[in-house]
Write a protein that binds this DNA or RNA. Structure first.
Length: 766
RNA sequence: GCCGGUGUGGCGAAAUGGCAGACGCACAGGACUUAAAAUCCUGGGACCAUCAAAAGUCGUGUGGGUUCGAGUCCCACCACCGGCACCA
């Protein structure tokens, strides 16, 4: 287990980064402990495949794919030399261990996983991870001391040290040998920490000619290097090695006798891990010589299966999910222990609440804090409660379901409610009413048919959850789906990663760099409206971008302009003076009433130009909100204000609509100004938040005259004003009549004239 | 090493294959002010030239390509950011 002494708890693999805890950055060591796991590996394939069904960023999907780490290959059995002859008497009795390592309890073979079974003829030695269960069994008396020293050395290394020291290969010989099943060769078995106990079978066949790591190891310890994949580069020909046999090349005769030695020599100097064609790879029953890598893989795997020496296998990097923690704050497991056996509490005993504890701090021994609650711990029938608790992820895996139906006391979420909110498009719901147990709601709601997208409509979050929450929640949801408890196989179909906000130096914010911006300070200085507006104005939502406090100043000034667009400045001065002499007892509302609307705001009809400005703004803001392009939506509102502020008479209807656009971006200010507009008796919704979203009228945006660029050979030479209805012929004539363009094509032959109505004219001349 | 992303003014950025730099920051000049702050107005990619201006040339990381036309599409490369990494 990954044990973090500082946090006093175990951690999941995903929570350990570079050998340190993801939270706090404390050292993590390995410690044997008995813990609860969730079998997320059973969902590896579904978690991988269903990534294709969801709308997430490529990078995020790729992170999950890498984390799941699917590899296709083969498992191959290597006979231990001398096994069955009585030379190797010790067998492991531990069935659980045997299962973990997919190893026979009394082993006569070692299993390895490889993605390159086609290189089996080149396996010249084997390596077991130091923790491999067969190590004590196979180690010879002469090598015992060396092996045990090495194991102790490896165990003492933290994960961090193990990766940091990865450069230099280390290892020791066990004294034992195995038999390469394809050629009967007796090959030495080593142990080395470059082989991980937690991946595959914890043992590998080493093919130094075609694997970088094996090659380094073989070089260091003088082990045999046998090439089995030829590439045409070996002959000095500049032909890219191909997984399939290139046309016209007879590869079975590729390596001549003379070339054989050269090939071996070549591979001892350099390691080629690329695909190629088989060489030196035949026995009386099977030959891979001349075959492309894919063909060779298939052929040898089939042969191994036929001989019961191995089988095709898929391996995952994903490990089962360590789901218990030694913390007080966390859901207790609804599990009790009777006579050393565990059993689940009945549903009637749920939810299981944690006991009240005076001392809830972690213990140093690793025993969970709940063990201190003796009353809670021991049940009348003599059974004992499980004292581990669930990690924080347990709640985040289903809160989005619980939010739909938070007061439901009989189920985690009502079936109808879940279908309504999470069900996909086309789902038609016939519900009589809301659930009856919601007594607080006297008038049962009727759920309309859902036309929304399935799952959570939109999930916004950072990439830091890529292989934590976002993987766990998908797994959890899939389990619920398979149990028939939710409508969809995925919880979040549409996910957007907001980009990281960097410090003003363009570096990640961190205390050590001293570039951290405290939101509270910004709020105090500029207010919540300016803060959120700035965050949206900085740039595209998904982009990483540096913080710039002067940028906040900029949007703050914009909000000031909006304010002055509506408010009479002398009355504001009056307010400010009154405020300084007013005691707290006096009504704030009375003070605010001193602020009057700008007298240029009038209940008059808007001019066509004003309407055009407004409706261009409505269009842009509406479309940009749909696309989550908040930065450009805000620019559009700035453009509107820059124009409107110069209007002598400001039609109240236009300003009112503008406030509706501003409301989602700057709700406080917009709502305040909305209330001021009430003096006009426009009967707006009492609360701006409930006002309907404005619609734009495309007819108001139509231009009569537009500016058309005139190009010669693609270069801009002039801009002409034309009627929007100008025909192709008219545009062509106007362009040819243009004096500024003329010098650039005079004396040349006009080959053609490109006219794109409403866009441009391009005269092509040579 | 592998995977993903991003390269446009001094800075954040904008631009259905069609006038590159909208909008904002910073800067400079001006107005208002005793002065400052705030506010308002004006200016600006680079180069060349000039008393000044017009005109001109170049310009979206680099090199090619497609196209009447490329920041945008295609190919190759470089740089930076993020993730994974002895995964057999």
């Amino acid at each position: 287990m990954n044990w973090c002494p500082e946090l006093g708890t175990v951690l999941a693999n995903e929570e350990v980064i570079d050998g340190k805890s993801e939270v706090g950055g404390f050292p993590v060591i390995r410690k044997p402990m008995r813990q609860w796991m969730l079998r997320i590996t059973a969902y590896a394939e579904k978690l991988l495949a269903d990534l294709d069904t969801i709308d997430w960023s490529d990078s995020l999907k790729e992170m999950q794919r890498n984390w799941i780490g699917r590899s296709e290959g083969a498992e191959v059995k290597f006979q231990i030399a001398g096994s069955g002859t009585g030379i190797l008497p010790v067998c492991s009795k531990d069935k659980a261990d045997a299962e973990t390592h997919r190893q026979d309890a009394c082993a006569t073979t070692i299993r390895v996983f490889t993605t390159r079974p086609d290189t089996l003829f080149g396996a010249t030695y084997m390596v077991l991870s130091p923790e491999h269960k067969l190590v004590p069994q196979i180690t010879t008396a002469e090598q015992k001391k060396a092996v045990e020293d090495y194991k102790a050395h490896a165990a003492g290394k933290s994960d961090l040290e193990r990766t940091e020291l990865a450069k230099e290969k280390t290892g020791v010989f066990t004294g034992a040998y195995a038999i390469n099943p394809v050629n009967g060769e007796k090959i030495p078995i080593w142990i080395a920490d470059y082989v991980l106990a937690s991946y595959g079978t914890g043992a590998i066949m080493a093919v130094p000619a075609h694997d970088e790591r094996d090659w380094e190891f073989a070089k260091k310890f003088g082990l045999k290097i046998q090439p089995v994949v030829g590439s045409l580069q070996m002959r000095g020909q500049d032909i890219t090695p191909s997984p399939t046999v290139p046309n016209g090349v007879n590869l079975t005769t590729f390596v001549t006798i003379a070339e054989k030695q050269a090939a071996v020599h070549y591979f001892t100097d350099v390691c080629v891990a690329a695909d190629g064609v088989g060489i030196f790879s035949s026995n009386p029953e099977v030959s891979l010589d001349g075959l492309g890598t894919n063909e060779a893989k298939n052929k040898i795997t089939a042969w191994l299966e036929e001989k019961n020496l191995g089988k095709q296998t898929i391996n995952y990097k994903l490990r089962d999910w360590l789901f218990s923690r030694q913390r007080y704050w966390g859901e207790p497991f609804p599990i009790i222990w009777k006579n050393g056996q565990h059993e689940a509490l009945p549903e009637s005993a749920l939810p299981l609440l944690p006991p009240t504890l005076e001392d809830y701090k972690p213990t140093s021994s690793g025993e969970p804090p709940l063990a201190r609650a003796k009353d809670w711990l021991n049940l009348p029938d003599g059974s004992i409660r499980e004292t581990n608790t669930m990690p924080q992820w347990a709640g985040s895996c289903w809160y989005y379901l619980r939010y739909l139906d938070a007061k439901n006391s009989t189920a985690f979420v009502g079936k109808d409610v879940e279908s309504y909110w999470m069900g996909g498009e086309g789902y038609r719901l016939k519900v009589e009413g809301f659930r009856k147990d919601v007594a607080a709601n006297p008038e049962p709601l009727t759920l309309e048919p859902s036309t929304s997208t399935p799952g959570v409509d939109l999930y916004v979050g950072g990439t830091e959850h890529a292989v934590l929450h976002l993987l766990y929640a998908r797994f959890w949801h899939k389990v619920l789906f398979d149990l028939g408890l939710v409508s969809t196989a995925e919880p979040f179909f549409k996910l957007v990663n907001q980009g990281l906000i960097l410090g003003s130096d363009g570096q990640k914010m961190s205390k050590s760099r001293g570039n951290v911006v405290n939101p509270d300070d910004v709020l105090v200085e500029y207010g919540a409206d300016a803060f959120r507006l700035y965050e949206m104005f900085m740039g595209p939502l998904q982009d990483t971008k540096p913080w710039n406090t002067q940028g906040v100043e900029g949007v703050y000034r914009f909000l000031g302009r909006v304010w002055r667009l509506f408010v009479d400045e002398p009355s504001e001065t009056e307010f400010e003076q009154a405020e300084t002499v007013t005691t707290k007892a006096q009504s704030h509302q009375g003070l605010l009433d001193l602020i009057k609307l700008n007298s240029s705001i009038k209940d008059v009809a808007a001019t066509p130009a004003q309407l055009k400005t407004l409706h261009a703004c409505i269009k842009k803001v509406t479309e940009d909100l749909d696309g989550m392009r908040f930065n450009t939506a805000i620019s559009a509102m700035m453009v509107f204000v820059n124009d409107a502020i110069s209007w002598e008479a400001k039609p109240v209807s236009v300003l009112k609509t503008f406030l509706q656009l501003l409301a989602p971006f700057s709700p406080h200010l917009a709502e305040e100004l909305w209330a001021k507009l009430a003096t006009f008796n426009l009967q707006p919704a009492t609360n701006l938040a409930y006002a309907p979203w404005p619609k734009f009228d495309a007819a108001l945006l139509v231009e009569n005259e537009i500016e058309i660029p005139v190009q010669v050979n693609g270069k801009l030479r002039d801009v002409i004003k034309v009627s929007v209805t100008a025909t192709v012929a008219e545009l062509e004539a106007l362009a040819l009549a243009n004096e500024k363009a003329k010098p650039y094509y005079e004396g040349k032959t006009i080959k053609k004239i490109i006219v794109v109505p409403k866009k441009l004219v391009n005269i092509v001349a040579t």
